[in-house]
């Protein structure tokens, strides 16, 4: 049981890291990124491929994180030229282009056959089942560091500027600051967090294939952020937890709902997520824990 909860916890923390990244981009800066899964995929594949070719894990993670951040650079530049709606669609298209590239460049990624046998974290220490607990602990630390980073960013003069961009870009410009550079940087930091999450994901699932990186992942992260309340760091933490409890909890609720077959249950689960999203936007736009602002 403990190990199962640890596993669920690991996945929740991976989603949390993703949500923190998106929250930094959208919640604080107002950058609409619907291609989050692309950076997740880049981080996952980079780290997996490097460790499979014999690299130690730490530098592989670093490279994955870095690559994801760098991949966000051109998109960040583009975000300066495009308004919200255009950016939403462009990023969505970008994530599909990344997925197709991963799928097609078989010499590198083995394409649709996928990459099996990715090493687990802390496996080489020979500490058996404690390896996963160690992974969980590391994820907690990484998430805490990410939260600290975000909070620091937000509270710094830099961060106040970021939030000012979201609220009134022209005014910021009038102050003689460069919102453009800031926005690109924020975009890259958010993407790097997604890349880091990808590294953890790759070494936890141990098998990667392109169809694990569909836009659905992006939508899940958006859902987590919306549930928790955009622009709230604690919200990202709560949102990811609730999403995970909801997705995994249904394994245990099956026995509670008689007369619903498992096929139907899968549909009911998605329907509930959709309904939650509608109701949240309608009635709790500040997230479930936030105070009403709008």
């Amino acid at each position: 049981m403990t190990a199962y909860l640890v596993a669920v916890g690991i996945v929740a923390l991976i989603y949390m890291l993703l949500t923190l990244g998106l929250n930094l981009q959208y919640g604080y800066t107002g950058l609409i990124n619907f291609g989050h899964v692309a950076f997740f995929a880049i981080g996952a594949y980079a780290s997996a491929l490097l460790t499979l070719s014999g690299w130690p894990m730490a530098p592989a993670f670093a490279v994955g994180t870095l690559l994801a951040g760098l991949a966000a650079w051109p998109i960040g530049l583009l975000s300066l030229r495009l308004s919200d709606d255009y950016l939403a669609v462009v990023t969505l298209g970008f994530s599909e282009a990344v997925r197709i590239t991963i799928q097609e460049e078989r010499w590198l990624t083995k394409g649709v056959q996928g990459l099996p046998g990715i090493p687990r974290m802390f496996q080489s220490l020979g500490i058996g089942e404690y390896a996963e607990i160690a992974t969980l602990a590391l994820l907690v630390v990484v998430n805490a560091a990410a939260v600290a980073l975000v909070v620091h960013l937000v509270r710094s003069p830099y961060g106040r500027l970021i939030q000012a961009i979201r609220d009134d870009e022209v005014a910021v410009e009038a102050l003689g600051k460069h919102p453009a550079r800031l926005k690109v940087q924020v975009f890259m930091v958010g993407a790097a967090l997604a890349g880091l999450a990808g590294g953890f994901y790759a070494h936890f699932i141990t098998y990667l294939s392109p169809d694990q990186f569909l836009p659905l992942v992006t939508f899940y992260v958006w859902i987590a952020m919306i549930i928790g309340g955009p622009g709230r760091t604690a919200g990202a933490v709560a949102g990811a937890t609730i999403l995970m409890v909801f997705l995994e909890g249904s394994r245990f609720t099956r026995e509670l709902v008689p007369g619903v077959s498992e096929v139907q249950l899968a549909s009911v689960r998605i329907a509930m997520i959709g309904l939650a999203l509608i109701l949240m936007t309608l009635y709790r736009p500040q997230g479930i824990f936030g105070e009403r602002k709008e």
Binding site: M1, Y4, I205, E248, R251
Partner: peptide, 20 residues
């Protein structure tokens, strides 16, 4: 358990079967 025909969902389901 339901694998949902998806590797990541299946990993959690398998963990549940094995551990719980």
């Amino acid at each position: 358990e339901d694998s949902q025909t998806k590797p990541d969902a299946a990993v959690l389901a398998a963990k549940k079967l094995i551990e719980v």
